[in-house]
């Protein structure tokens, strides 16, 4: 099972008007892999995530998830299939409690429809209990039980990141897309995050695709790294080879004036 293809993307392109945000983008991720996506600002990393989660529709190319063509699926269809994501700028349900943030993500696959809810049938009460139990499992796992009744907007940044990961897990995904999970975290929080991602990866048998600027995170947890620059793939490989890749270094640090300096 671990060798089966989870995500297969071919020739993906996204244009906004005349601007080409992403072109000739391919990736294949096998189930259980932990892959990183890096690149300078504006390289198109978030565009990749928006295309994979269905927030944007590609101009060209195909996306297959576990053998199914999801190129033109909506985000909610993708979520139900098992693709969950977090956002670069945290997008929680601010006025809702931490627990309700998690529960809202459990509704699409565990909740009841309107009629069952209003008529208060036994099936509805059972599903509410299951949702309650499940939400506590994630709150416990991410160390959020103490703040479960706080409105999400009142939490410090680091905890909000955790809530967002918890909410993504509640979708019951097999592919988790993390968009800069370490952004804005202090070194301790980053260390915790690395542990959390590793734990989740093993416990829930997840395939994880991760955009990150923090090289320590990327280099320690990813088995494979893809580098984007100016909307196309610059390099792909294991952490060691990426670290040594001269084109990658150039893209990050700027092109040397001439090779004579070297």
């Amino acid at each position: 099972m671990s060798d089966s293809v989870c995500l297969a993307v071919n020739g993906l392109e996204k244009r906004f008007g005349g601007v080409v945000a992403l072109t000739d983008y391919d990736i294949e991720i096998r189930s259980g892999e932990l892959v990183g996506l890096i690149g300078p600002n504006g390289a198109g990393k978030t565009t990749v995530f928006n295309l994979l989660s269905g927030v944007l529709k590609p101009t060209r190319g195909t996306i297959f998830f576990k053998g199914q063509d999801i190129t033109r699926f909506r985000p909610d269809q993708n979520a139900v299939l098992g693709i969950a994501r977090t956002f670069q700028n945290i997008r929680l349900f601010n006025a809702l409690s931490v627990k309700d943030n998690i529960k809202a993500a459990l509704h699409p696959h565990m909740g009841c429809g309107l009629w069952k809810t209003v008529l208060n049938v036994p099936g509805y009460r059972r599903s509410e209990r299951r949702i309650e139990d499940k939400s506590r499992e994630f709150l416990d796992l991410l160390g959020l039980l103490e703040v479960e009744n706080e409105p999400a907007e009142n939490l410090p940044y680091g905890l909000q990141r955790r809530v967002e990961i918890g909410r993504a897990l509640a979708v019951n995904p097999s592919l988790l897309l993390l968009d800069e999970p370490a952004a804005g975290l202090n070194p301790n929080e980053t260390e915790d995050l690395i542990q959390t991602i590793r734990t989740l990866h093993q416990r829930y048998n997840l395939t994880i695709f991760l955009v990150e600027h923090d090289m320590r995170v990327i280099m320690t947890i990813c088995s494979r790294i893809q580098v984007l620059d100016m909307g196309h793939i610059l390099a792909e490989g294991d952490p060691v080879s990426i670290r040594k890749n001269s084109r990658v270094i150039a893209a990050y640090l700027g092109q040397p004036e001439s090779s004579a300096h070297a």
Partner: peptide, 15 residues
């Protein structure tokens, strides 16, 4: 309520 708070995030969790 999730839709009210953030429609895009709500859609991304499957709503």
């Amino acid at each position: 309520l999730a839709i009210r708070e953030d429609p895009l995030a709500a859609q991304c969790v499957g709503t």
